[in-house]
Amino acid sequence: MTVIHVQDLQKHYGEVKAVDGISFQVHQGEVFGFLGPNGAGKTTTIEILEGFHRQDRGEVSVLGLDPQADRYELQERIGIMLQETELYQDLRVGELLRLFASYYRGAVDPKTLLEMIGLEAKERAFIRELSGGQRQRVVFILTLINDPDLLFLDEPTAGLDPQSRRAIWNWIDRGRQEGKTVFLTTHYIEEAERLCDRVAIIDHGHIIALDTPKSLMASANVENRIEFTTEGSLNTDKLQSMPLITNVVEHGRGAYTLFAQEAEPALKSLIALSEENGFRIRGLHVEGASLEDVFIQLTGRRIRA
């Protein structure tokens, strides 16, 4: 069953084509991700689906509703995590959750949610007293307070420590197991690979690829990535001409990524080249193919420039 339906969506801000004709569908029970760099159009899209902005062109339907015309009915059934948000600093955690619970026809007991995120002891703490990670957890459970069918999460783990990030990933997994549909945006490769059933890669308001992470990586046709830095610039032609190297990308001065069918022989020839040319390899990092490679192949840039 289709939960989100988007057809030829466009949104312009003056000259900026924030979203430039995108179409996709999200099915019930899946975790669907928008992966893209800053300014790609992720927030613009998600906020049109949430009913915050009206599109210039195209059709959107969420849970069979029109986000503009049926705004309140839609809000009853979805949970929203905004990219940037603020809570009443002078309320206690319990007060805040009970307030938000009162906004809905039906709501989950705030205590259950606090237990889930391990903050039962903070029920009487003021929001302003919470640490960044604790605050973000509270922001997260606010999206669950009406037991929604569909979650919109705009960069749910941006700026979080690894521990909190993993915790939020687990709760998203749990939501999926309960049959919830999740639409999230991210510019973390790992997050998209780890969480999403399908990923749309978005850049400059266009969807440039859409598939399961596995298929996307397979289509990238890259098996290994070798990253390193040197003190000065190297001759990329020399790097390119090494055996088994399929591509070389230079990110600024002295930072390189080599793409290779097989890592080991490529590494050997890289080391041989360094000895021959007398440059030192620093920060060597070898990785299998990732969605980053897909992005680089499609755009020639990294997601996080």
Partner: peptide
């Protein structure tokens, strides 16, 4: 300005 209103706008509160 702080963004509290927007968070409220993401609920069915009229």
């Amino acid at each position: 300005e702080e963004g509290i209103l927007k968070r409220i706008g993401a609920t069915p509160l009229r």
